[in-house]
């Protein structure tokens, strides 16, 4: 489902290429859960951003469901992202001053979905993320764990097959991190493809099938099935 071919990302500083990602090749099958593991600055967030189409590679390509994401023009890429990719950010990135229900609806608005249908779908997504009781709260009234579940609901609202999570437990305590992991398990059981960038050791405790891919200095070190 996700194929990464010879992916490079570098910046030129004083004529010298500084590689963030160097020759990444990776294949993720439909319904698979992949943990991108690595220390801070190893390049996992950049890799995730390129997969999501939020950043462009210097060379190489990312293919999702047969579409070369990095080659798509803005209009198509935006639609593709809205329908096929759900993203959960480290700092949640919920819109301030907008309640959780409306925050969850945001990806559907770009898709020109009617208001009632959008609200119904958002409410379902909040139920799935187990946060529907906070639907009318704005982000500043929510705890970190609640914001994270809100972010999951928003990632799920358009029913995408691919969910990308960037350091999802970095701002959560252990209890909320475990809750997040049980949410992941639920998504995995629903057949979603999951790619999670993290350096949190809690992901070593995952009790469902997954693959761990280590990234170090922009290169893939090892990949193990667990």
């Amino acid at each position: 489902m996700v194929i990464i071919e010879n992916l490079n990302k570098f910046y030129e500083i004083d004529g010298q290429k500084q590689y963030i990602l160097n020759g990444i090749n990776l294949s993720v099958q439909k319904g698979e859960c992949v943990i991108l593991k690595g220390v801070s600055g190893s390049g996992k967030t950049t890799l995730l951003s390129i997969i999501a189409g939020l950043d462009k590679p210097s060379s190489g390509k990312v293919i999702i469901d047969g579409e070369a994401v990095s080659k798509l023009p803005d209009m198509h890429l935006s639609k593709f992202r809205a329908k096929k990719i759900g993203i959960v950010f480290q700092n949640f990135n919920l819109l301030e001053g907008v309640n959780l229900l409306d925050n969850t609806m945001v990806p559907l608005i770009a898709d020109k979905i009617g208001l009632k249908e959008a609200k119904d779908k958002a409410l379902n997504a909040l139920k799935l993320a187990n946060i529907e009781h906070k639907a009318n709260k704005i982000p500043s009234e929510l705890s970190g764990g609640e914001k994270q579940r809100g972010a999951i609901a928003r990632a799920l609202v358009a029913n995408p097959n691919l969910i990308l999570c960037d350091e999802p437990t970095a701002n959560l305590d252990r209890e909320n991190s475990l809750k997040f992991i049980s949410a992941l398990k639920k998504l995995h059981s629903m057949g979603k493809t999951l790619i999670i960038a993290t350096h949190d050791p809690i992901f070593e405790e995952l009790d469902f099938k997954h693959k761990v891919v280590e990234i170090s200095q922009g290169k893939i070190g090892f990949a193990v099935d667990a």
């Binding site: 935006s78 992202r81 993203i87 770009a110």
Partner: peptide
């Protein structure tokens, strides 16, 4: 700045 980036990240196009 942040609001626009969030909208773009969740699937809004530049035109939207």
């Amino acid at each position: 700045r942040k609001e626009i980036a969030i909208l773009r990240a969740v699937g809004w196009s530049i035109k939207d």
